[in-house]
Amino acid sequence: MEHVADPLPQAAFAKAVLELEVSNHAGVMSHICGLFARRAFNVEGILCMPIVGSDASRIWLLVFEDQRLEQMLLQLEKLIDVRSVRRHGAGHEVFERLEAFFH
């Protein structure tokens, strides 16, 4: 009998905040969300705004630090529309400051 892997209990993992700089056009979000969705890699939070005075947008992602995160970062970097990827600790203030809007 084949063993079906249980989904990783993500709540047990620490969180990380990813900061992406991407080309600002309509399809970018689909490319990025698709990468995570297909691997059932849960994205807890997502925030996207154009960067003032440029043709780029910044995307903030709140994700779990499971063992696949390294591979996810490499896959993100491969996307043509993703110009840079930075990884921050869970303590990054961007999502903390937003929390007031989610009560």
Binding site: A26, G27, S30, H31, G34, R38, L79, I80, D81
Partner: peptide, 14 residues
């Protein structure tokens, strides 16, 4: 077509 081909192309354009 753009949405359909996102996961099967290296990159795509509309």
């Amino acid at each position: 077509t753009y949405g359909l081909t996102i996961p099967i192309t290296k990159h795509n354009f509309l």
